[in-house]
Nucleic acid binder design. Structure first.
Lengths: 240, 240
DNA sequence: GCAAAAGTGTTCGCTCTACACCCATGG
DNA sequence: CCATGGGTGTAGAGCGAACACTTTTGC
């Protein structure tokens, strides 16, 4: 795009001087294990929040979109790319950041805690997974951001097949049901849950079963993305 | 919030110098009349888009949130406040604005075209309503923004009772049905539509009927917001 | 053989869908 | 009395909810 006329070209300069605003992204990185839904947090070193935890975020660089910034933050901290991410909402309260005007774009992402060894790979000595239910306060307005993203996650979990993104590539039906129950905070009927999934035809058995369990071993399944996309051109509802 | 340490305080200054970014809002203002769903547009005077129409937008001021900026834009152009508005999505492509980096937050709002006399009241000589179906291109990336907001509107129209916000305060069931059909692009069964609304119990008859029509006059209804809020603590689906 | 979790069918009520005729008014 | 849109009921199919017992494995 051409930057043409000089007098128009002063426009952005004026804006930068008059309206000093920084733009950041904040990532609510959800993970899941058998103890519940977790969020990846880091200690905050900025006054007055020195003793609080905060979400992972950064200023948006001049040569990247906010989506790219969010992926960059995630990659830098975890070494993971190709991760499901969704833009949620802008937070722009005037005093949300102690150092001045920072408008932030929030994202949530879903990653598999187990099966990813990033915990050892990156400079994440201070990163920690914290159970969502145990998070009472965070630095800045990050608690509100987290709650907003959690609501969005719950809504999307009911409308789209994204729950699998929190589980290992191969899982049992019971694991999947427990995930839904924990994230949505509801109890589900085992038979109804299985019938619904079986009807959707988006899970495929691997042929394998659990090993080394002291009870009847459960069959293992994987989510068939191709099958889903062919079958659900116009989306569907989980209706859970 | 305290701006404390000097060395930390330089942080935002550095950011402003290094990451020159402006933040704007763009409003997709939907209106509706019997000819269809419309969007309020204004001619663009910025090269290279001089002959195109654009959405209504503005830079976010230092003393306002993006929500407030969106309401300000709407009020300044139409004289209307207390209007339904919803934040939709951030657009941040690097070259979306010819004068430099402008990250924009998109909103849509719903207003009643008839029954509002703002067309004469404000400096809107150049504002125009344009049918959504007739909009093929807009300045900047505004067509994409409009399409995104339209999708969001359609989704919300199915999940929440917001259709009334596009109609006069008092309307017939046929008007309401036609609105749904036009915005969603589907045909609805008259009897099923009426049964569903009657079951929801959120429309109340005014007791009046249409006047001066050369056929049986239709009863007039209004949307009872209070009734809805009491009845639907956890929301509901229109399921259309 | 016992503990522990896996796996499996049926009934009931509700909601969605499809569909056709009489009614009230103005001219 | 005719033209125009307003207004109404019913039957069938599909979906969600509730509910209990048998199976397979490890120890």
């Amino acid at each position: 795009m051409a930057k043409t006329e000089g007098n128009i070209n002063t426009w952005l300069d004026q804006i930068h001087n008059k309206y000093k605003t920084a733009v950041s992204v904040d990532c609510v990185i959800f993970g899941y294990d058998e103890t519940g839904l977790k969020v990846l947090l880091i200690p905050c070193d900025m006054p007055p929040f020195e003793n609080k935890l905060s979400l992972l975020g950064d200023i948006v660089h001049p040569n990247e979109t906010t989506d790219q910034a969010a992926h960059r933050v995630l990659y830098k901290r975890t070494g993971l790319d190709d991760i499901y991410m969704e833009q949620v909402q802008v937070f722009s309260d005037l005093n949300r950041h102690p150092l001045g005007r920072v408008i932030t774009v929030s994202y949530y992402s879903l990653i598999k805690i187990n099966g990813n060894s990033f915990m050892e790979l990156k400079d994440n000595h201070s990163l920690q997974w914290k159970n969502v239910s145990e998070i009472n306060e965070l630095a800045f307005d990050h608690k509100i951001i987290m709650d907003t993203c959690l609501e969005r996650l719950r809504k999307n979990l009911r409308e789209h097949p994204i729950g699998f993104k929190l589980l290992p590539p191969v899982f049992t039906l019971q694991q999947l049901q427990t995930l839904y129950e924990m994230v949505l905070g509801v109890e589900l009927d085992k038979r109804n849950f299985r019938r619904k999934l079986s009807h959707l035809q988006i899970l495929k058995p691997t042929g394998d079963s659990q090993k080394d369990v002291s009870h009847r071993p459960a069959k293992l399944y994987y989510f068939d993305q191709m099958e889903y996309e062919e079958r659900n051109i116009n989306g569907f509802s989980f209706g859970l």
